[in-house]
């Protein structure tokens, strides 16, 4: 019976490290992602000399705001042990839907809620299939992927320009802090990250998400509201898809039904690289944000080098593999323990 005694005398620095690593082993993958990010940034600066400029770093967030929002939603889903393949096409659908409504003169205060509701509706469909009809998350969200993509083309087969002032304002406005700048889209992305992090860490709903990912059966036997929570994570992911549609529309100044093809894979990769376990139960919204920054940095470095953009996916794929194998080792170790 080896009970750790809390009030041990005068902890040394070594003890503190040990206590930290014992308590917070689940943070390690996220820390690894931060280390990778720092190495990438320093390496890029050493190579190009002008990489760490405020302009360039500000652009990292600006260019990937939509990805960050999607990653937050995906984190909720993956922590429960599920997966959502629909996010890319949901983003395309809501984006083109919003653009088309704006083009036909619908006021923006109607358009934005409709975009969000459209995303949430597809999320609800997936959640209900997963929870109440025992459909594997992979397959249910696959139906969502088809539906979103098809509906995007139903709305329009070609891109629709957006000339609505408030929407364009989201992207064009730059709040300057010295040489740094941030756009409203960037602020929205960071706000979503903050909200996601708070919900996951400080609400009973968020803790239920972790409990389900740890053991759904245990969560149920502990009397937690498993069914509601499982549906809700897909609704949140759908909502994030709708919001990402808005951000991408503002960013590109147009809705385009081919947007976001393969984005679901980028998002999953970012979330995993950020330290979330694909088998569920462990992960952090802030980690996913780091994962998006790693992705963004690799993307930017490759365009700095003038190399093929396809290298991004190869490197992300390799990083993903590395993280999966490491996670597998971690899980295997904790399996042995219990």
């Amino acid at each position: 019976m080896s009970a750790t005694v809390v009030d041990a005398p005068a902890p040394t620095a070594m003890d503190r490290v040990r206590t930290f690593s014992a308590r917070r082993a689940s943070v390690l993958p996220t820390l690894a992602a931060i280390v990778i990010l720092v190495i990438l940034l320093i390496g890029a600066q050493a190579e190009f000399g002008n990489f760490l400029s405020p302009r360039n770093l500000s652009a990292l967030l600006l260019d990937h705001a939509y990805l960050m929002v999607l990653a937050v939603g995906m984190t909720f889903v993956i922590v429960t042990g599920g997966i959502d393949l629909s996010v890319g096409s949901v983003m395309a659908f809501t984006g083109i839907l919003g653009s088309s409504m704006l083009a036909s003169g619908t006021p923006v205060w109607i358009v934005i809620p409709v975009m969000l509701a459209g995303g949430a509706a597809i999320g609800t469909l997936i959640g209900v299939l997963v929870q109440y009809f025992n459909v594997q998350p992979f397959i249910a969200s696959l139906a969502g992927l088809f539906l979103g993509r098809g509906l995007a083309y139903v709305v329009s087969l070609s891109s629709i320009r957006v000339e609505n002032e408030p929407i364009l304002w989201l992207q064009q406005t730059r709040f300057l802090i010295g040489d740094w700048y941030i756009t409203p889209t960037g602020i929205i992305a960071l706000a979503v990250v903050a909200a996601g992090a708070v919900i996951m860490a400080l609400t009973r709903f968020g803790r239920t998400v972790y409990a389900i990912g740890g053991s759904e059966q245990s969560a149920r036997l502990m009397g937690l509201s498993v069914a509601r929570t499982k549906v809700l994570v897909y609704v949140i992911s759908g909502l994030c898809g709708g919001l990402a549609g808005l951000l991408l529309t503002a960013y590109s100044g147009a809705g385009y039904p081919r947007n976001g093809i393969g984005t679901e894979l980028d998002v999953i990769a970012c979330v995993v690289i950020g330290g979330t376990l694909l088998t569920g139960g462990r992960g952090y919204v802030l980690g996913s944000m780091i994962g998006v920054f790693v992705f963004a940095t690799i993307n930017t470095i490759i365009s700095f080098m003038g190399a093929e953009q396809s290298w991004t996916h190869i490197i992300i794929g390799a990083l993903l593999l590395l993280f999966i194998v490491v996670q597998r080792a971690i899980v295997a170790r904790s399996d042995r323990r219990t």
């Binding site: 694909l278 088998t279 396809s310 991004t312 794929g317 993903l320 999966i324 597998r328």
Partner: peptide, 23 residues
Amino acid sequence: VLGIQPIIATLVLMLAGRGVALL
């Protein structure tokens, strides 16, 4: 051999494969 879930294991190549093809 490594015992990784099939969905995840094949996701890696799904992601990187097209990059390789483009290269």
